[in-house]
Design a protein around this nucleic acid. Structure first.
Lengths: 247, 247
DNA sequence: AGGCCTAGGTAACAGCGTGTAACAGAACAC
DNA sequence: GTGTTCTGTTACACGCTGTTACCTAGGCCT
């Protein structure tokens, strides 16, 4: 792929400029837009690989724009928002956004997410949606979700604890996507009662859990191939995952 | 089966979002709805394998919606409710719900229940109504309810005590459905006089009882195939049960 | 380079849930 | 009554998981 072209859509000139500059410094072509009209102009006038879309766009909701865009083409969209509450995030996903970032965001996280979305888009021009969840292959490893068994490249059976399994599933469902500790925690913690989820867990439980999983599914836990650390961000599952459907 | 499609119906956006996200992370396609209208839209626009329906839906009762839906199609429904009192539960079942979960619920329990209902739905598109229950087959074992005899896959006769038999029956009646200790206790305690049921048994009687039953009907009690533990939840009978009627 | 600060790795520990052996009382048969 | 079987309780072992503390590694500054 040539150098990716991104649209930066924000009605606040300062934010827009900052984002654009930042992305350019990191090797992308960044094209600033401030309205749906300018977005369409850009879309018509050339290839666009990704749209960074502010959720609040004047009196328009970015969400709505996203919905309309999704109806017409399949340019990946990352929603950017000052509203970090979970339901807003969900509204974003429901609308078809590929990812969602809350302001103020860690620039490294933004960069990682952008790369991840581009990476995904590259290898799934036709949506490769999971058909049924039963077996996964990743870097020589094999995971059978039905039996909850993990098999190493050498054929050894490895037994994971409940939490380790849950963590692995989270990563298998989000390969190449950097996940923050908070996100992982939420994913594992969802207690369903909708109240303590995302409890301000201050501890380092995720770190320890990741370490334990590494100990089981990394050939050289000190030099992780699968569960990579992204300093200041979180962790990424850094290999492709092949999902095979039932029977 | 391809990947199951679930409707998540709740008028509270946050709960809805959390549930949706959780289910997606666990490999389902989850479609959020907030009213009967949106439910019908989804039902009309594609296959739906299961509906997770909140009992309280604005001023509407989910129960009523469930009743109406049941009249028209036979999509499985799990009712979700903040009201855990037993009579509400019963109202749910009478209305044709396939299962019922009280908030706040353990997410693993929810997941397990969803899988169980989908599992059941798959293998009984035509209702397999029991006429009179007399014999069961499960994982090579055979249980004759008339004579109260259990026969092993190898043909040995195994004798169970009264409680062990009762426990086995509870599981045979609820295969693939995770049962909490409390539920099992209630089921076993119903002495027929229907009065002392649900005594606040504080002990670990169920654990011990399960252990004893395992010792009799598991080939390898240390690695249970039939009576699986669900940590933090309870126990599941993890194999199919074939019911043969008297004739 | 060296020094400093912070993020991350991880060993050790503590708390909790479950398995289960041993015990004791209850129920039952004789 | 005696003896046997059943069943709940208790106590201990063990594995799982979150916390803490200490150490190392990575960045950033001068």
């Amino acid at each position: 792929m040539t150098i990716p072209r991104l649209l930066v859509v924000d009605d606040d000139a300062e934010t827009r400029g900052m984002l654009t500059q930042f992305l350019r410094q990191n090797g992308f072509i960044a094209l600033p837009c401030d309205s749906e009209v300018t977005i369409r102009e850009q879309l018509d006038s050339g290839r666009v690989d990704l749209i960074l879309l502010d959720v609040m766009l004047g009196d328009e909701y970015g969400v709505d724009i996203c919905k309309r865009l999704r109806h017409e083409q399949d340019v990946p969209v990352i929603l950017v928002s000052a509203l970090s509450a979970d339901h807003h995030r969900m509204a974003g996903y429901e609308v078809g956004a590929d990812d969602y970032i809350a302001k103020p965001f860690n620039p490294n996280l933004l960069l990682a997410r952008v790369k991840a979305v581009l990476h995904r888009a590259k290898r799934s021009s036709s949506l490769t949606y999971r058909r049924s969840i039963s077996t996964f292959r990743f870097g020589g490893w094999f995971y059978d979700a039905k039996r909850d068994e993990v098999t190493s490249p050498q054929g050894y059976q490895v037994s994971l604890s409940r939490k380790e399994t849950a963590l692995l599933k989270v990563f298998l469902g989000n390969p190449h996507i950097p996940l923050t500790r908070e996100e992982i925690n939420t994913a594992l913690d969802v207690t369903g009662d909708g109240q303590d989820a995302g409890n301000g867990n201050p501890g380092r439980a995720i770190d320890v859990l990741v370490g334990r999983l590494r100990g089981k599914i990394e050939t050289e836990p000190k030099v992780p191939e699968l569960l990579r650390t992204q300093r200041g961000v979180g962790y990424v599952f850094a290999v492709d995952v092949a999902v095979e459907d039932d029977q």
